[in-house]
Design a protein around this nucleic acid. Structure first.
Lengths: 148, 148
DNA sequence: CGCAATAATGTTGTGCACAATCTAACCGAA
DNA sequence: TTCGGTTAGATTGTGCACAACATTATTGCG
């Protein structure tokens, strides 16, 4: 039997499955991130900064997270208020803002290190299955992000 | 080689892959939904209402979409303002609010019918792969939603 | 050089999400 | 019957997302 074309049924819709799973995972992370005083998008931003050896511009962070300045500017100001990051205009190009971690921001990495594992254990997720899923999702994201 | 435990790397994180893919799909739907004058969560709510033969309570809709009244109450008022839905207190239980479609709301279903297919064609998504993915994502959502 | 085009970030306004709290309505046992 | 507990929905406040636009800085071309 041929695969049916996508129907107007909630249960069959890939977009709804993605939307539900994403929000469920954010809710799952919530309590653990609250221990660090972070929201979920703030945590993602810290991941980007922890991985970078150099200060990043707002645009660099936005490119990795697919977020624009309208979202990032206030978020980064909150990270600054928390004492986790610094924002300084780039002397060499005054249009840019360089975001770097404070000592406190770097130190927080150790506290965050166990979070993914705690989530996987707590909810009994399979690591190999998750890695496969990550690959498929990355591909979907790429397809949907491609310019038409 | 054993599968590694989840690391603090953006690219390996299931939660980020879900978050990115969900937002990418919402962005992809955006222009098509704008033709109908709907946002993405409004579209999901309309899907639920189109599938139901009876009026649904706010709680019914929330159970299907995993949304609470704090999100749904204003959203449903907007659908009411658009002339797509009616909200009336249940005479039999004055705590409840019954949400039903207007004639215009029902008529909009025909305009929405082609949207999933247009998305799949436009972005070259594979239907069979998507259906497999929906099953895996539904399972993940279930696992993450399970009470501890 | 002069200046139009471009680039990076910031601002504004709308609409979710969700936690916390509130209010009104229902239910059930003493 | 009444009153304590529960339920359904609304409200409030915070923080994203994102479109549209504003601002300032840089760049490249004539």
């Amino acid at each position: 039997m041929a695969d049916r074309l996508p129907q107007l049924e909630l249960g069959n819709q890939l977009c709804f499955a993605l939307y539900s799973a994403s929000r469920a995972s954010i809710r799952a992370y919530g309590p653990l991130l609250a221990e660090l005083g972070l929201t979920y998008p703030q945590y993602l931003t810290m991941l980007v900064l922890w991985e970078a050896s150099e200060p990043l511009t707002v645009g660099d962070i936005g490119a990795r997270l697919h977020l624009d300045s309208g979202t990032l500017t206030p978020l980064l100001k909150r990270l600054e208020d928390l004492g986790l990051a610094d924002r300084t205009r780039d002397r060499a190009d005054e249009r840019r803002v360089l975001v770097s971690l404070t000592e406190r921001g770097r130190a927080l990495r150790a506290d965050a290190a166990g979070i993914p594992e705690r989530i996987f254990r707590r909810y009994g997720l399979d690591i190999a299955a998750a890695q496969r899923l990550v690959r498929e999702l990355t591909e979907i994201t790429g397809a949907l992000t491609r310019p038409l």
